[in-house]
Design a protein around this nucleic acid. Sequence first.
RNA 1: UGGGGAGUCGCCAAGCGGUAAGGCAGCGGCCUUUGGAGCCGCUAUCCGCAGGUUCGAAUCCUGCCUCCCCAACCA
Length: 562
Amino acid sequence: MEAAVDFLRAIVTSDVAAGKNDGRVVTRFPPEPNGHLHIGHSKAISIDFGIAAEFGGRCNLRFDDTNPEREEIEYVEGIMGDVRWLGCDWGESLFYASDYFEQLYRWAEAIIRKGKAYICDLTADEVREYRGTLTEPGRESPYRGRSVEENLELFRGMRAGEYPDGARTLRAKIDMAAPNLNLRDPVMYRIRRATHHRTGDAWCIYPSYDWAHGQSDAIEGVTHSLCSLEFEDHRPLYDWFLDQIELPHGRPRQIEFARLNLTYTVMSKRKLRALVEEGHVGGWDDPRMPTLSGLRRRGYPPEAIRLFLERIGVAKRNSTVDIRLLDDTVREYLNSRTSRVMAVLKPVRLVIDNLPEGEVEWIEVANNPEDPAAGLRNVPFTRVLYVERDDYRDPPPKGYFRLYPGNEVRLRGAYLVRCTHATSDSEGNPIEIHCTYDPASKGTAAEIGRKVKATLHWVSAEHSLEGEVRLYDHLFTVSDPEDEGHGGDFRSCVNPASLEALTGCRLEPSLSGAAPGARYQFERMGYFCVDSRDSRPGRLVFNRTVTLRDTWAKIEKARQGK
RNA sequence: UGGGGAGUCGCCAAGCGGUAAGGCAGCGGCCUUUGGAGCCGCUAUCCGCAGGUUCGAAUCCUGCCUCCCCAACCA
């Protein structure tokens, strides 16, 4: 399939062809350091860095740190780590909007001198009243007519800290009757005595987003300022401000695209923060979180995330992508590159009655049938094994191919075994399954002239390691937790079963040295990764990244549904 | 109701006047020492609706409908 060119790349292509900005392409990723990045941001990252790279340009990482009250250094470090993890390189181009405070201030004075901005003494509440409504024009501030000299003096006073917080603002003088509310004399500076994570107490006035953003783009020579749809209304203001200053480089152009939404999760910093602070999850890096740190800990490879982003494309339509597309992409990516290993999550003993006690056969198995280069390993085959509890049913449901009295199945990499009987508890749960094996049954169906319908994973009881395995499900029980239509807010549909921690799992011995972050496919179960926080040698903890496709589970589920 | 956007298969998404790509999901089947993986086939006579222009429209025009965003000294 030929990858279709999205509208952003089409625009950049034609700008370059038209010789705009001498054919340079400079983008920027402008996070506010007030939270951790999530997969939604990775769409922007992938677009910003991806387009720059494709056009031989550069992408700046710029922290939009114009609001000292909620920004912290901890977040800038986390964000840099996340961007790097995604494989994006900003080289020397690490910037902070706060680096431009002095330049911004000088430009603001120049705008005042042109009579295009004024100091307003209205309170926040009054500003809101004067702004008018969606359908009614606003009224002009009584301070709108101040002289340039007075404005300049007051503005300097604001900078010098002569007025209390919130007492005055610098406002652009545009049009209080503009149908676009952003043009009704927007605030450029507010007084806020807060210690900034970079400039400390050097400033007590801070520029607003609208005033800082486009000018920062201009300072950095950004050519294409790509942002999300909600800033469409701000574009006329972005352009207005650009018109007021002497452009140091070319003229940046803002273009908007639709942000990413995913089913069964939330994507707003506010809500993610609430999940963390209210203890619904273990932290920003909880493997159930859509944060990049959560996805990383869960075992999602950054390459798979980027592949996913390529698949969903970019457009201007608000959309919510089915999270199964992400799952599928991760599976596809991991399939060819992950070693197979056997791990029994919910173990039950299986005794091979015709195999002598104490006998051990080290069976050679492929690490990855999809990749011969992955090599071979040996797994011990003994009289007493563990198999998955789900792999025994008596009586067997229709279409069940696994263990039940009389049935024969394959033990992966090893022999065919026929179930003879099983002991069970009062509830009917198997305690110990008994089988006999056929020593002549190693080999393919063609080789041994016999076919069975199921192959089971197993581990030697004696040799296996004990470990913990954490199974994850969607964080929310509904596909659109943002939709509060059905009672309660997003908190009320947090999935109580989103984490299932299994202890007493049995792992094949080759896993003994598994390093934090290492990924494996547990045969028939899914892709798992060693937890980077809680796993210890001798006390391994695995996170399930994603399950394998499970046709049987689908059949059973469909049956239950009926 | 003012302004700004968007409406193509269940979910994404191509298409830009010449007669509906692709992916995911779904449904059949093949193959298989993972009910995994892989492979094959099927699934929009139709592009929010209604008119119009044209030999010909999802693509152009008109009107209408629906959804999203905007009234922080947040970004």
